[in-house]
Design a protein around this nucleic acid. Structure first.
Lengths: 329, 329
DNA sequence: ATGAAAGCGCTAACAG
DNA sequence: CTGTTAGCGCTTTCAT
């Protein structure tokens, strides 16, 4: 790798001039040409590491997500990447695996790597974020809230739960169950509260095992659905509070030969790789990509020096209605 | 952020001694304690950027994949991450989007960021990789081949195609179509050749539109399947040469009410989020995660100084058979 | 407009 | 075993 000194020598100027050319600072047209020629010939490109050390900052932002294999988070990452890429920033994607220790580890890395900023879907409400913010590094929370007073972009999860349950009720289902995620995860809890609000409003009894807590993934949805089917009076419809559990639930239904709309299914989250006609099920689409682009723009604002009080942006989900139950039902 | 000088001052030693403590070089036990105490108090952690500039290398590796939203590549990324994480390395995930320009861009970044190495699923056979290898940075190709003499870990795609088509033939299907990806992508081409080999061996005529080229994604699979169904004599089975096109094909079938095993479906790749009973379809499981772990281990070997000639590791796919066609068929 | 020189934080000779 | 020092490649005063 050629250095700025070699370029300077070849161009017959000082290293400072080369630096100025590359940073768009005023330099005589004549010397600009000299420098350009020399650097092209040497295939020079500035050493980012040295720049970073000198500038105490880099054009890299970290994105910490809990599960890189969940399409929701990859779509979010995709949104972040689009915005950053356009702004000339690079993205470091870190998989925290729902593990607070890993989250802390990656936050430390963001710190010592002098990253320009961090977007994270937090798994823990610890104060490790403070280490970054104390140094003036902007942090934007996405999808999940932190206890801290920082920028955040989130989904109205309560409304999503209400929308899902209401869609099923309006379609005519009357025994609506809910497959919820782990209690600790706030997003799924809010969605569950939305479901509960709807079923209790209609006087439906939700205390007979219709609320199933499961892990947040496909197998969690499977076992929860199996438990629901084993009830004395199984539900005639089910809301799942995330995409993966929805996949598991639908898999089980398809295995026992009960297909929507024989049973009502509303999934909160998208099913980008569903292998059935998606018309039969109700989907409450979460704006994953939009979450990412919004968060990235907010972060870039902060990096650019925006100093206004912390903002929280709440995006809304959009519903695609499934079919109504068969008349026989 | 405390620096090594502040720690040294507080501990009453030289900066070099602090550096030695943090790098496990021989230092008297007494001073080690002093340094530890001082650095704890100051919450010191070494500045990675400075280390990188000094050492001309970092404990970061880049992973370049063409589509972060494809479960195959996220599983691969997950495998890479597991191995790197255990070895204390961090991963920078870059989405090349099947775009050679983006690939070049990220390779440049890997270079100027002094990354320890790169794992990439190449989209272009250009010589940009040379820039890294010339500087002694190891590069491992994964999933797809490069023209260069570097480490690679791949799948036996021809065999995967043969396996898929053979499974359908053995199940009794006789008009086996193939939904293939773009011609430029070598993996899908090899799989297509495998399919062709099987159908021609059995004397089946594959020249009546049974080979459909489509884009590599869900919508590609959809339009290809629609084209196949519109034929005068539609196929009674279909092989798709990747996971996403498989999803699209199955979606279309489910929409028109033809479900496997009424039609035979063999998908090369996994369907982690399939919302039907996966028993009905044949899946040729690609060892995505294993591909990642293997590549990461090879890269770490090279980073550690391993100097043997370039190796190519070929992993094999494993099949899960679907159901045979109904007797009526 | 341009050059000389200091310094970002760390590590590796080199002395001692 | 430990301290002093030079220097990784770049940017930025401070002079000129």
């Amino acid at each position: 790798m050629a250095t700025i000194y070699e370029v300077a020598a070849k161009a017959g100027v000082s290293p400072a001039t080369v630096s100025r050319v590359f940073n768009g600072l005023p330099v005589s047209a004549e010397k600009i040409d000299l420098v350009r020629a020399a650097s092209d010939e040497l295939r020079y490109s500035p050493n980012k590491t040295a720049q970073r050390l000198r500038n105490q900052s880099s054009e890299v932002v970290g994105l910490l997500i809990p599960d890189i294999e969940n399409p929701f988070f990859t779509a979010l990452a995709r949104g972040v990447e689009d915005v950053l890429q356009a702004a000339g920033y690079s993205l470091v994607l870190c998989n925290t695996d729902e593990d607070p220790d890993k989250e802390t580890h990656y936050l430390d890395i963001a710190n010592s790597e002098n990253m320009a900023g961090v977007i994270l879907a937090p798994v823990a409400e610890d104060g490790d974020i403070r280490r970054l913010t104390d140094r003036g590094r902007p942090v934007v929370a996405v999808d999940r809230d932190t206890g801290l007073n920082i920028d955040a972009v989130m989904v109205d999860n309560r409304a999503a739960g209400i929308t899902a349950a209401t869609a099923l009720w309006d379609a005519g289902y009357r025994r609506i169950a809910c497959i919820a995620g782990p209690l600790e995860i706030e997003t799924t809890e809010e969605r569950t509260l939305g479901w509960r609000q709807v079923v209790t409003k209609h006087g439906a009894d939700s205390s007979v095992g219709y609320l199933q807590h499961a892990n947040y993934r496909v197998d969690g949805g499977r076992s929860a659905m199996q438990a629901l089917l084993a009830l004395d009076e199984p539900p005639d419809a089910v809301v799942t509070t995330n995409n993966l559990m929805g996949v598991g639930a639908i898999q089980v239904l398809s295995e026992v030969g009960i297909v929507p709309p024989e049973i009502g299914v509303a999934v909160i989250g998208d099913l980008p790789f569903a292998t059935l006609s998606p018309r039969a099920i109700t989907q409450v689409h979460l704006p994953a990509r939009h979450l990412g682009t919004t968060a990235a723009k907010m972060l870039l604002d902060r990096i650019a020096g925006d100093n206004q009080p912390a903002r929280t942006v709440v995006l809304r989900a959009e519903v695609t209605l499934g079919l109504a139950p068969l008349a026989a039902s």
